[in-house]
Design a protein around this nucleic acid. Structure first.
Lengths: 196, 196, 196, 196
DNA sequence: GATGAATGAGCATTCATTCAT
DNA sequence: CATGAATGAATGCTCATTCAT
């Protein structure tokens, strides 16, 4: 009977996402997560080693899944332009549908605590790699012009990240989809992308 | 004798910058700042209301100065392109010269604690406004093509921010100047900037 | 089918002895005993009221048995000297053969927790009584000279106890039998025992 | 001004002695010690690393002083008999005057927790050495007959310890002085001491 | 103003015990 | 009877803040 176990694990992770998003990692007590998850404080420790482990697991699970999802979706597209558009759309859609996770991601990504940061950075690095790979192939295929792949990725990711950051901070945010096309255009002209 | 007072105030702020950068806001004890500043714990509270006030003041002072500096420098340039180049250069140079501040900025900007975030966001908003103003004028002067000013600013700032983020995280970072021209090119083509 | 019940009861008691000896009463979790006994945590509570009850039962059972054993063996000897020698031999042999129990006895006998101490002291008091009885008869039979029976018992028991304490603490202990004769001699001359 | 500091240190140590004696190390909360010492919980940690450090310091300080006291007093006596009598008297008197310390000593000496036991055993070993030295010289000077010095010491210390143990446990204890002469006699005849 | 010893609220974590299965 | 997941009371320790000197 491992269903209930997985269920409770996910419930705690979900509660943690919400709570971390609302209060921030340090200002959020474990008991708050427990209450929101509908379990006793001690129960948390049957599923996670400690408070830090909750945050780390949260990123590993959720962000890992996000990157995986993008990687798979992207396979359906051939041109660099379509692939980047796909990433932009998926990224914005995912964050919009997981606002709390987006908030936590924005907030906790830059922890000074080395161990936390390390664990968080993992899935992100995968994502960076994925983006850089698309850009690189774009250059090779002569579909894009980017003098420095890393900087290209920084522009691409940084732009999306700044959008999410604004959206997350904003009290009454526009739907991200509304501005999707604008970003796409901007990014395409930045990389001088062909095929449109 | 208000000089010593100002001096001690700055000493504490400097110590706080270094300490927050090294340990993060929450994991950095006030006593650590005091020791680094060479004052007693209690002395801190003669200059700051509380721990939070240190962080807030730090941003107000330092970031405020940064934005002011940019605002003034920018006056010397006429074309949108030159103005943006000026911002890029100043931004990267400033962060490079104030690595600890850059780290703190990266880390603490996205605190969930509302009061902290509010205070931090202030100077940033000024900066955003400045960028957006330049972009807007660029569009008006027909020097740039940007469908949505806010998204334009997000691309501009997000790119720089992602660069700083990478630079701050990296153990052995490239000098930011080395990639300056690449960013400039990318941004210029994103905005279809004239005059080059 | 009361045999399995008794078996499991003894298994838990055995596991508790080993665990208490290794970690001490307070630092030993019930779950550790359960694991060592090969039963579930909850099962413990089918056989014992609570953790304290395990310790108390342990003493009642094991120490009670020990005192009983001595009481019976002693019946075979007539002279005070022979009886004391018998006690010494049995005591040292028993402890040597039940090192974990010896450790627990040494450690937990002096709990401050009144209820625990009370329960533990019970079997010990029996033992003290037995010794004092032998000494008293020795005095009456003119075989020994002891001004104060209680102090005599303290010397007798205290000596054996200090030996066990050293033996238990020592990493590479001498066999207790090796020093048996020395103690016997010392005790005999302390009590000016006749008949040797 | 190190007087107040030393005073508070001693106050906490005193409070700890009383509290440990009443409740036992594990069952005594740090807050109980603080309250009895008349300081805040946090203050304890300005003087001691942690709870364990309190216990360890307590033994180091108090027991160390005890052994030192005995060592010095003993110098005034020449014959083995007088020296042993001196130890017996000092031991019993000290314990009688420091009942709580005696209780703690009895109780916590045999902790299973290795670190605690280690720290506690230190001063005790000194005491054992002192006793063994006296016995050894007694044998050399032909004033005593002891086949095995270690066993001799075990008899000597064990007897005193058992007396203290009884006295500590007893609700209405005899004054230890009342039985002093009896122990002295017993020990003297055990070691066949001359000069009486 | 400056100090730093003292404070005590606050919190992560443990673990004996329970109880639904 | 047996299980072991779940509970939640209990507690050692930290650290921002105060205040007597």
């Amino acid at each position: 009977m491992s269903k209930p176990r997985e269920e409770k694990y996910q419930a705690i992770l979900h509660a943690a996402t919400e709570s971390f998003a609302e209060y921030g990692y340090f200002s959020c007590q474990v008991s708050k997560i427990a209450k929101l998850a509908g379990v006793a404080d001690g129960t948390i420790y049957l599923y996670f080693k400690n408070k830090e482990d909750i945050l780390v697991s949260l990123f590993r699970e959720r962000m890992g899944r996000f990157v995986e999802e993008i990687r798979q979706t992207i396979g359906r597209y051939k041109t660099t332009r379509d692939q980047l558009v796909c990433i932009i759309r998926t990224h914005l859609k995912f964050m919009q549908e997981n606002r709390s996770l987006a908030i936590v991601t924005q907030m906790e990504r830059r922890q000074s605590n080395v161990e936390i940061r390390e664990a968080i950075t993992g899935p992100l690095r995968d994502y960076f790699q994925l983006i850089e790979q698309v850009l690189e192939e774009g250059v090779e295929k002569n579909e894009a012009v980017i003098a420095d792949i890393k900087v290209g990725r920084q522009l691409f990711f940084g732009t999306l990240d700044a959008m999410i950051s604004d959206w997350v901070t904003s009290e009454k945010p526009r739907f991200l989809e509304e501005v999707e096309d604008v970003v796409i255009d901007l990014v395409c002209s930045a990389f001088k992308l062909k095929g449109n």
